[in-house]
């Protein structure tokens, strides 16, 4: 791997860290609730590549931060499954994250066009 690609990969993993959390909150906010495999597949379908080793630790961390809540559910048919729902705290965080994200992208565009608002 060339030096530039290596730098890009490094930057990407830094960038992803916060972005992925935003994506999970957004997904849970839109879908009401979901579980590990479904979250992973939805993210991958949307173009955010994520592996088990990234997603499950993140969900664990988010549960501890109380931005999501985990619930075990035993369905009428089948075995127990762990569902995640977004908490009020998580919604608050999501709203601010999105705001920040929008502002960042706007700022980048301003810079791109030589300092003029688009």
């Amino acid at each position: 791997m060339g030096a530039a690609e290596e730098l890009y990969e490094k930057w990407k993993s830094q960038f992803r860290k916060g972005f992925l959390e935003l994506c999970v909150l957004e997904l849970l906010s839109a879908s009401g609730r979901s579980y590990g495999l479904a979250i992973m597949e939805q993210l991958n379908r949307a173009g955010v590549d994520v592996s088990e080793g990234t997603l499950y630790p993140l969900l664990m961390r988010m549960t501890k931060d109380e931005t999501v809540e985990a619930q075990w559910e035993t369905p009428e048919v089948g075995h127990p499954r762990k569902y995640y729902v977004i908490t009020l705290h998580g919604r608050y965080l999501l709203a601010h994250m999105k705001e920040e994200y929008k502002k960042s992208e706007e700022a980048r565009q301003i810079l791109e066009t030589g300092g003029q608002r688009v």
Binding site: Y35, G36, L37, M40, E52, Y56, M60, A70, H79, P80, R81, K82
Partner: peptide, 11 residues
């Protein structure tokens, strides 16, 4: 918790 979740994932 973790093991059951991963088992469910593999299932």
């Amino acid at each position: 918790d973790i093991i059951l979740e991963i088992e469910d994932h593999i299932d």
